[in-house]
């Protein structure tokens, strides 16, 4: 039997026998099932994934009836990163009219709430113009990025310095201070941009600094939702489980550290989030079949637990997509099709 060409999680090509691909699919789903304490994929679902890898098609797409929304985070930085000289408005129009985006996102190049609060006065008129020029829902996006509130970038002591010294209480106090400042910034920016015409706000890469950051984003979402009940709030995650950097923080009586996507979404929902973006990390030393089966297993459990729309993160190093700056299309399209069709996603 001939070998099938696929990739490792770092994007390099490998060739595997059909049975080796199937073994990797089984191992991937079992890994997710064991870590997340969720059901593994069924044999039918694994065979479906196997067929995706057996297909010689360079690019695959969803079957009729499975079409979904396409949203993009940090939209107005992506074209700039490709060194294409167009304005933010033109970028938004390109996404809307040429690239099939169903939601749009205005963002500042320095993509953190702490940084963007200083340019809110400039991005408010940008938002006013952007909503006049385009039709789809318009979000304003940035990252909670709690790390920016601690030394050397912020005013609070750095728990990363305190913890190794055994200063646990001081580290927790530092987190408490940073949380307070981050919540304040997220509410300020969210309020200002919503009042300037945004349909909603995106908390992107939430939880990158662990449980304290997830808590800050949940509290900010809760406050914004109470203040603006019709506001759309998207929350995209940073990793598949919440790192317990603090370890004891709870939201609504639930300890945040160690939560996997199917538990994260329940709290996001409670906080007033209207679109949730689960993330499953790609292991660069494992094959794409292993990674995809794993990602679909986590995302499917998240979809089943969710009562709000899910737009899963698929891109560089997440969602069974290789860790490449320009994700290869064979891998990205297979991951997209599998997630949408097996996890009943609302969007990507």
């Amino acid at each position: 039997m001939g070998k099938i060409r696929t990739r490792l999680g770092d994007g390099s090509f490998i060739e595997l026998l059909e049975e080796e691909i199937y073994e990797d699919l089984v191992d991937g789903t079992q890994d997710a099932a064991q870590k997340g304490r969720i059901p593994p994929l069924s044999e039918d679902e694994l065979r479906y994934l196997l067929d995706l890898y057996k297909s010689k098609a360079r690019v695959v797409g969803v079957d009729e009836g499975h079409e979904c929304c396409l949203s993009y985070d940090n939209m107005t930085s992506k074209i700039e990163r490709a060194h294409i000289s167009v304005s933010k408005f033109q970028q938004l129009q390109l996404f809307e009219r040429a690239l099939g985006a169903d939601t749009l996102e205005l963002a500042h190049i320095d993509y953190s709430y702490k940084q963007v609060k200083h340019v809110v006065i400039y991005d408010k008129p940008n938002m006013e113009q952007a909503v006049l020029l385009t039709i789809p829902p318009m979000l304003y996006g940035a990252m909670p990025n709690l790390g920016l509130y601690t030394y050397p970038d912020g005013p609070c002591p750095n728990p990363g310095d305190l913890l190794p010294q055994g200063k646990f209480d001081e580290a927790k106090e530092a987190y408490a201070q940073a949380i307070e400042l981050a919540i304040k910034d997220m509410i300020f920016v969210g309020s200002e941009l919503y009042e300037a015409g945004a349909d909603g706000i995106n908390f992107d890469t939430t939880g990158a600094a662990g449980d304290a950051e997830f808590y800050a984003a949940l509290k900010a979402a809760e406050t914004l939702k109470a203040k603006y009940p019709k506001m759309g709030i998207e929350m995209g995650m940073a990793g598949e489980f919440i790192l317990g950097m603090h370890g004891e923080i709870e939201y609504e009586g639930v300890r945040l550290a160690g939560l996997y996507p199917h538990d994260q979404v329940k709290l996001a929902q409670k906080a007033g989030v209207t679109i949730f973006g689960p993330v499953v990390n790609t292991g660069t030393n494992e094959s794409l079949p292993w990674n995809l089966a794993r990602s679909v297993t986590f995302t499917k459990a998240c979809s089943e637990a969710s009562e709000i729309p899910l737009h899963a993160n698929l891109g560089m190093g997440v969602g069974g997509v290789p860790l490449n700056i320009m994700p290869p299309l064979d891998a990205l399209s297979r991951a997209s099709k599998a997630h949408v069709e097996l996890c009943r996603l609302d969007g990507l």
Binding site: G166, D211, L243, G244, G247
Partner: peptide, 12 residues
């Protein structure tokens, strides 16, 4: 690595 134990505990 699987989210069952957290940084302060890891350090101790």
């Amino acid at each position: 690595g699987s989210g069952r134990l957290f940084l302060p505990e890891l350090i101790v």
